[in-house]
Simulated scan of single mutants.
Amino acid sequence: MKITEIHVYQVDLPLAEGRYTWSDGRHVDVFDSTVVELVTDGELRGYGEVCPLGPFYLPAYGAGARAGIGELAHHIIGLDPTNLGQINGVMDTALLGHPYVKSAIDMACWDLLGKSAGKPVCDLLGGRQGESVELYRAISQRPADEMAQNVALYRDQGYRRFQLKVGGDAAADIARIRAASEVLVAGETLVADANTGWLVADAIRVVNAVADLDVYIEQPCISYEHSLTVRRQTRLPFILDENIDGLHALLAAYQDLAMDAINLKISKVGGLTKARLIRDLCVSLQIPMTIEDSWGGDIITSAIAHLAHSTPERFRFSSTDFNSYVTVRNAIGAPQRDNGHMKASSEPGLGVTPDFDNLGEAVAIYRE
């Protein structure tokens, strides 16, 4: 099997609740998603997706993903997409950095590997673990009382894990965390995710003010060193996200006792191949993970489900179903939320078929 063409699609994914807001007032109303179709010399086609959380969250943006795919296209056309080591090696040589660009291509290769083997990607990533994957719900940054009301709203949809978007004014964030904590019931988990938004002094104010609560603190500051400073001044359980962008970062954080769990985003590390490597190391080191991506639609939700469902349950802190946040479907067959859980498809590959009615015409086609 070899890749003969690469088709690239762009699709807008409007947010169901209108606006998603996180630290420093950053917000997105419509997500810019890129879908990749790998055409082979046989009957099989593979699909991947990358969808940055706007251009001001990580060093990634929608138009950049499409430009980068164009840069890589002629390096991988003619290669065997099921030879994941070769594909990733060629991409890393041809384009230094830019892991998010490579993620959709790698994801499509896994889709083809599963289809060619007649197995779901979940089986190839280690085998299905447990009946389903528990999901968290992100609570967009709003006044404290509204965020607490949204915890109750999403509880009615089956969620038991809630990620509050904080990282703004310290006093307001203390109020947000306390208000949400007051409406929790037994068995629920609360995460205060600052998404790098606090300065060290503000982060220390917050963790000291909520020290009596049962809450996780996630990625308080933009730099690893500043987050580590906060970590060393609180007994609350600690999650690192944006700073964990590869194996070296994970190993350094493990050595420094910098966290109790990590957030593993597929596109942040370069695709399923590298995410699996980090996942397996976390299992060996006994580090729980939230397994997800920066954002996405049905194809990314499916990839998340396969990676999460093949992870031992003990180390799955949570995952998310991005396709429930948006109003446009970009594929058919993706996992759907069921009482706060989802399951990876049992169909070969990722188990999804693109919805070309919503994708429209390809914005770029690359051939031999």
Rank of each mutant, 00 (worst) to 15 (best):
A148V: 12
G197R: 02
I204P: 03
A209R: 01
N323G: 01
G68H: 07
D41R: 02
G97L: 10
Y61A: 11
F356A: 04
H248K: 09
G89Q: 11
H309G: 05
R26K: 15
D92F: 09
T40D: 02
W198Y: 12
M342T: 02
G158T: 03
H74M: 07
N150I: 00
P312D: 09
P354I: 11
V101W: 03
D156R: 14
L72W: 10
D212T: 13
G158L: 03
P59L: 10
I365V: 14
Q336P: 01
G62Q: 04
A364H: 08
L236V: 08
D280P: 04
L53R: 05
C282H: 01
A186N: 07
F356H: 12
I278C: 02
S140E: 11
A308S: 14
G127L: 14
M259H: 13
S116Y: 08
E182I: 07
I244R: 00
H98D: 00
R161F: 12
I3E: 04
L164R: 07
P237Q: 10
S346L: 13
L84F: 12
Y61W: 14
A94I: 10
H341M: 09
D321I: 08
Y136A: 01
D145V: 15
V35E: 03
A175L: 14
L307E: 04
V11E: 03
I174L: 12
V328R: 07
A144D: 13
K119Y: 02
T189N: 11
S318F: 10
A209W: 06
G68T: 06
R66S: 07
E292T: 14
Q157I: 00
Q149A: 15
A203Q: 02
M1H: 08
A331F: 00
Q336L: 14
E368R: 10
H226R: 13
L359E: 00
I76K: 01
E188G: 06
A186P: 04
I105W: 05
P354S: 10
R178N: 08
V210I: 15
R279C: 00
M107W: 00
Q141E: 14
A261I: 01
P55A: 09
E5Q: 15
A108M: 07
K268H: 10
I266A: 04
G351T: 06
C122R: 10
V101C: 04
G360W: 00
R235F: 09
S319A: 10
R66C: 03
